[in-house]
Design a binder for these strands. Sequence first.
DNA 1: ATCCTCCCCTAC
DNA 2: TAAGGTAGGGGAGGAT
Length: 801
Amino acid sequence: MRMEWEEEVHSARHVNNLVHCSYMVEKNRKLHNQFDNEASTSSIGASSSGNPIFSGVSIFVDGFTVPSSQELRGYMLTYGGNFENYFSRHRVTHIICSNLPNSKVKNLRAFSAGLPVVKPTWILDSVAARKLLSWVPYQLDQLANNQPKLSAFFTPKNSKLLEDSSNNGLCRIVADIEDSSLRFDQSKDTHSSKADEMVEFKNQSSFESDDILENTDATAIEEPSSVRGNCIEVELAEGEERNVQRELEPSHQGSATSASSRCLDDQNSKERPSSVAMGPSKQCHSTLADPNFVENYFKSSRLHFIGTWRNRYRKRFPIMSTGVNSDSSDVNASDISGRKVVIHVDMDCFFVSVVIRNHPELLDKPVAVSHSNNSKGTAEISSANYPARSYGIKAGMFVRNAKALCPNLVIFPYNFEAYEEVADQFYSILHRRCNKVQAVSCDEAYLEVTVSEGEDPELLASLIREEIFETTRCTASAGIAENMLMARIATRTAKPNGQYHITPEMVDDHLCQLPISALPGIGYVLEEKLKKQNIHTCGELRIISKDSLQKDFGMKTGEMLWSYSRGIDNRLVGVIQESKSIGAEVNWGVRFNDMEDCEHFLIDLCKEVSLRLQGCGVQGRTFTLKIKKRRKDAEEPAKYMGCGDCENMSHSMKIPLATDCVDEIQRIVKRLFGLFHIDVKDIRGIGLQVSKLEGTDASKQGMEKNFLKSWLTSGSTSMRKKNCARVHGEQNLDDTLGQASRDSGGPSVQMDSKMLNDRASSDLISTPPPLCHLDLLKQYIKVKIERDIEEIYICFRLLKR
DNA sequence: ATCCTCCCCTAC
DNA sequence: TAAGGTAGGGGAGGAT
Ligand SMILES: Nc1ccn([C@H]2C[C@H](O)[C@@H](COP(=O)(O)OP(=O)(O)OP(=O)(O)O)O2)c(=O)n1
Ligand SMILES: [Mg+2]
Ligand SMILES: [Mg+2]
Ligand SMILES: [Mg+2]
């Protein structure tokens, strides 16, 4: 996060800012940092007026549940039931309990004395059905001896997508044991000898290994034999799962899986002998040391994982995730049936929750996820659980700073496959419960529902959270409000493992004291600027006129500040849009000694980007190369192998015909790189972005394309000329190759990007293409002629220089 | 006015 | 040792 970036010593670009650290940081443009509603609602169609569903029912909630016992208490009291804070065999009729670790089940069995032990869903479903349902199907799994799981009846067998894992305990076991894979062993060998570190570390390895490696601690494991059995099963299951994933990946080529996260590709490929003695000159985790740096880097990068998740989601939920916004049809929905309500759902400390699922003893201990447990290191915390946050630990912090705040902090490694699986389960549930889902990230989404009089969105939220917990054993929180902004803000209040409804009457009170940084869209920089105007809360922000805000921050940003501070947000919950750009960048471990190193890296980056384009089925026309250049006089980066204090530079170039072809991209990138005139030793980061995307068009690929092209090229030139003239008249030609203008130094401009077009096959085919391709043909001709003309103009321009 | 390029900012 | 990515929104300022 920002605080860690502040550790970089920034060169003063403004004379007077030496005093004020935060001012300096701000001034330095530093391092960029950083349903059918009816269907759904009718299914929950609960009346909030207390229909005495639970008359005669008296519950006792045992242990941790989702929803919480307080929420369950609310439902009981609202619907005519009774809630007991203490267990009494005489007063209690049902024990409510989520699935427990086996160790507790025995106790419970004895203690329940024959009373039904039921999952909380029973209560939610009964409220939804407006009548008391039989508790039998809701019996706690572990108590329903030898009974097949109820859910097994409902799950389609083949379910390749592993959509809803309630189908197999096996899936869970796989994930769980993966959790436990020991990945800190190297650090164990090399780590410093500090005592507390040792202790901490030992704790960790001991609990990690307990589950799979040894059964020495008999009390920790109830059924050692079954654990062993599972171990074997797991390996099989894991293999199967991999095969499934292969099948799912249509363009599975070599090791480079297009549009998939490297993080998921293969974590268990054994580590290469990376520690073979590196000369001290070679920094041993940089591009200099690893010829396959780009690929390996992405495999381990959490930010790469979350950054590429969206594209994987698009593929996995194609119908739900893509398409045009169905805006106008729903605008009037409020007239018809009820009011629109937005629910924002977000997993609690996602990366931590997933990896500590098998360690209930850690629930109330400070835990974080990071690559390294080194108390002196600069590895970043990805996510910290709530106990850890009470020490001030946050995502983005260096481990050494986190450990300084809390020496007992337990660090877990990443498990990207498990995150992916839980995210899939999460979205399967959301899409089943609601037909309007807007994905935000792997752990977060907005839902829109229309509720009629007497219906209760809070119940829907409870049901969803309950199902998420039952399926993933991770908790989620939910915010409910009239618009996306307030729903998101409500989630903050709800966390962890809660939900919160901000009704329209509550909006003003809720915002009034809220720090402006809590508003989405206000990050470090805006917060600092506003602070200087003595604005800290939304209430204070409201005092500033819209004009003034727009003058200071620009039209759109000013408008946003003005509206958000009032709880106004007109955004509609909708399907995510098709992507406008695709890119890849690396700003860690980038070190070059000579041009050869650099070129090698660039080639790999081009390959990566090309594969991502192909994986998404798009091609692009604008290519932007970004370089981070070590600032003059910049210190060594605060972060190990980091980019430190850099100057950001970029050049872009537009080509006439969209491409996804590696070779072509390499040529483009080579030219772009030349424009920088940079000493490769100063490079600390490189990125390549592609925009002006077009779907990879049938007329532009494969045999069809060649066929049409061949036919066209062999055809009469008169036709070509005629069309040329016509198109010329109606087309504006400003769409030309934007030769990066800032730097005119590159005289070596060859027309080597002169394309595809000209390397047509030399075969002459005289038969015309089938009539059904007429439209395709027309389109092709149009595009091609357009491009040809553009190129003529480009040539003309370049020659003129 | 509108577009384009080169940034910066934000969120996960 | 550690894996500081990705994409969208938007502003400033220049070209048209
Ligand atoms: N700087 C960040 C922010 C987030 N993430 C990852 C880890 C998080 O678990 C996940 C989801 O981000 P959230 O913002 O939802 O944070 P958490 O889920 O961890 O916590 P919260 O309970 O506040 O949602 O993204 C990350 O790696 N680095
Ligand atoms: Mg979260
Ligand atoms: Mg989130
Ligand atoms: Mg904010």
